[in-house]
């Protein structure tokens, strides 16, 4: 049984290793892969799917 405070487990899309995400992770959130440091985007939560995040573009910012 899981609770709201349990970490979420997901597969790192680059290495295939299992990684831990914060319990309050959001769709659209960017996570730094603890394995490679690559930025990963949370695509969905049920099931948890991660993809490599888009490259930074020139018009990004504040």
């Amino acid at each position: 049984m899981t609770s709201d405070t349990d970490p979420v487990l997901a597969e790192d899309p680059i290495t295939g290793e299992e990684i831990e995400l914060p319990a309050d992770v959001e769709v659209g959130e960017i996570i730094d892969s603890p394995v490679t440091g690559t930025e990963l985007e949370v695509i969905s939560l049920d099931p948890v799917v991660l993809e490599e995040a888009p490259e930074l573009e020139e018009d990004w910012g504040e």
Binding site: D24, E26, V27, G28, E29, I30, E41, V42, A53
Partner: peptide
Amino acid sequence: LYSRIRKDEKLLLGELRDRGHEVEKID
């Protein structure tokens, strides 16, 4: 409206939900 959830958006989402607002995330 978002295209990426930064720490800033996460803080905002947390505060909105804590206050009981319904949040529509628009990617």
